Amino acid sequence: MAAHLMYIINARALKRERVFRDRTNPFDLYDDNKMYKRYRFTRAGMMYVLNILVPELDQRRQTLRSHAVNSRLQVFIALRFYGSGSVYTSGSDHHGVSESTVCRVIKVVTDTLVELRDDHIVWPTTDEEIAAKQAELPREFYALICSFPRVIGAVDCTHVRLDSCPYGENEHVYVNRKGFHSINIQLISDAKYHIINVVARWPGSTHDSRIIQNSDIGQAYQRGSWMEEDYTAKTSVYI
């Protein structure tokens, strides 16, 4: 009996205390340059993103833990991962949370962003929207960017690396010209650098021209959906 009591006492003495890491506020640490280097947003850009995501994340919170990661820090953790592509250890050490927490946070923030995509990535579809954009976008590009008339958007593709994914039998089609596995994603932005269209379904070996030709936007151009009457001649707008 005495030996059992001594075992319990010693076990309690050796039990590791719960340690809460210091979670700093990046706004207290970084100026615009340092903030952009770590999160790919300036301080003003971070405030814009936080104002959108924090209310949505607050609605998702279903934890009663006394030291839970707040929604603001969750956004910083996710953007650190998106901007650097580093392993979870980097985000863990940088923000004072565990690697498993970083993993869970990235999933929650990513799911929230996906749900909000249609509120912020908008391509005109109705006749009224198309008519408004035909007048607005070319004027903005001419005034703000390149002085090139009748441009409505800037389009390009970028490769997003895939790592340890289940490629299946068609693994080879995901290998791009640079030799690594990826998805080739097409983006279109307006003159104010707002993304207005995304195509993210083609494997890395797909050429950029094939993506635009088979996209809804490319097919709309082939049908002449973005043509308009200009006095007696039909003139097109460019992307």
Rank of each mutant, 00 (worst) to 15 (best):
A2P: 01
H4R: 15
N10S: 12
A11C: 05
R12C: 07
K15A: 13
E17R: 14
F20P: 03
D22H: 08
R23D: 03
P26Q: 14
D28Y: 12
D31P: 03
K37E: 14
F41P: 00
A44T: 05
L50T: 01
L53A: 02
L57Y: 12
L57P: 02
D58L: 14
R61M: 10
T63W: 02
V69G: 00
N70C: 10
V75I: 04
I77H: 00
I77R: 03
R80T: 03
G83W: 07
V87F: 10
D93L: 06
H95F: 10
V97S: 02
E99L: 08
T101S: 15
R104V: 02
R104T: 06
V108G: 01
R117M: 14
D118G: 07
I121R: 00
P124S: 04
D127Y: 03
E129H: 07
K133A: 15
Q134D: 02
A135R: 13
P149C: 11
P149N: 11
V151N: 02
A154V: 11
A154C: 12
C157H: 03
C157N: 09
L162C: 10
D163E: 14
C165F: 13
P166R: 01
P166N: 05
Y167R: 08
E169S: 12
Y174V: 00
F180W: 11
S182L: 06
I183G: 02
I185S: 04
Q186T: 00
L187K: 03
I188P: 00
K192V: 05
Y193V: 12
N197W: 05
V198Y: 10
V198C: 08
V199N: 10
A200R: 10
A200K: 09
P203N: 12
D208K: 06
I211H: 02
N214R: 08
I217L: 10
I217C: 04
Q219E: 09
A220T: 01
Q222P: 07
R223G: 09
E228I: 03
D230C: 13
Y231Q: 13
T232G: 05
A233Y: 06
A233K: 12
S236M: 11
Y238T: 09
